[in-house]
Design a protein around this nucleic acid. Sequence first.
RNA 1: GGUGGGGUGCCAGAGUGGACAAAUGGACCUGACUGUAAAUCAGGCGCCGAGAGGCUUCGUAGGUUCGAAUCCUACCCCCACCA
Length: 445
Amino acid sequence: MADFRSSILSELDWRGFVHQSTDEEAIDELLVDKRINLYCGFDPTASSLQVGNLLPLMMLAFFRRHGHQPLAIVGGATGLIGDPSGKDEERNLLDEEALQANLDGISDQMDRVLERAVEMHPETLGTAPGNLPSGSTPLLNNADWLGELSFLEMLRDIGKDFRVNSMINKESVRDRLEEREQGISYTEFSYMVLQAYDFYHLYREHDCQLQVGGSDQWGNITAGADLIRRKLGETAHGITAPLITTASGEKLGKTAEGTVWLDPDRTSPYEFYQYWVRRDDKETPQLLRMFTFLPHEEVEEMTATIEAGDNRGEVQEKLAWEVTSLVHGKDAADFASRASDVLYGETIEGMTDEELAKIFSDVPSTTLDRDRLTGEGIEIRDLFVETDLQSSRGAAKRLIRQGGGYLNNEQIEDLRYHVTTDDLASESMLVLRSGKKNYHLVQVE
RNA sequence: GGUGGGGUGCCAGAGUGGACAAAUGGACCUGACUGUAAAUCAGGCGCCGAGAGGCUUCGUAGGUUCGAAUCCUACCCCCACCA
């Protein structure tokens, strides 16, 4: 690890964000006493960012905390094309309407995260070359400049500066060329040219000298820097972050259930928090570095705790709180943390509807007619199936036999138990649970 | 277009007339130990059934047989090599 003069680069380096870069020393020099503009592009493939996108977003956040000005670029134009990097098959193209919805959703999230990023942990804010950027992060859509470019202009002015020879040597393209199955379309092949043009445009129009991104963006970033050199004879820079995987080798932010989103309507803050709480000890230190603004000493202390085998889960709780707080706000993080305490606590009884509804607000719920609980009541297995906690009566049977069925946090022993109004945990609610962590709230009406 | 190989449960992959609801591994689920972690151990993993047991599955549709994932016929799809 080199010693850096600029606060931001030493910070990024310490936190493990620097995987590849065009020229570390030059970048360091550039960042020492001048505020620069930098950018990272985000593809609008969905209406929400996911945990995987958080990595480059954190880079922007750190830059901002060190007094630099991030620009968030959404790929309104490139999103129409689809980036082949890291993809093994051709992507479906989005129509413009869907794209617009995605752009709105994503830009909103980025802005909020970058806003909170400068509000959290003031004690670790960087020594800024300029005043801290305030207000929203400038958000640009590359459709604004790429859209105006005609195909002929493109070929004449830009295409000249691209050597196909070097383009096919880029990993993102080569992988696809060697893959006989899929190949690569001309459209996707051109993606790199567009992204390079973005960098060129931003360099000229917005004085943007640095591009950051995930490691899969390396080829695209250098293509941009090359274009700037050829056209202007000037030097622009790029930094990529390493690819982060979980201890079991999966992509960050993917679970068996699917993707962890930043959009609270897709992944509730509680589930988001839970995702981080459940991280493996082995990956937690790295996550603390990259996804929190905690001071180095604190991170090192927690790392030592884990290495000594003394962690009882509090490190993950800290991590979860910090990340949730950044993405969803302090209140949401506090709430998720409190809800977790109750949910992983003991028997639920003698509570009011209000209390229960609050704690379980993020948990899936079902409404049931009151008459179904009167008289005989409803058989417990049917309840498991109706709430989707189990896929069939057979599965519910197994679950209960194995001791994984809980009603109001109490283990169900009788396979043929019938649930009646006597089982209500509060005035009108029941809490059904499958295994350790799957809750379902049943509301009776 | 020609030739060869193949389609089995979430995935990989055995099975090639009865012992097959289908080996084995992974994923996944549950329990124990813990910390909502890892590792380990135990159990489970088509549907119905308290159970005995029953029912529906091996690309699709027919057929042979007492009996088919296994044999035959047609069709669909995939792969390899050749052109």
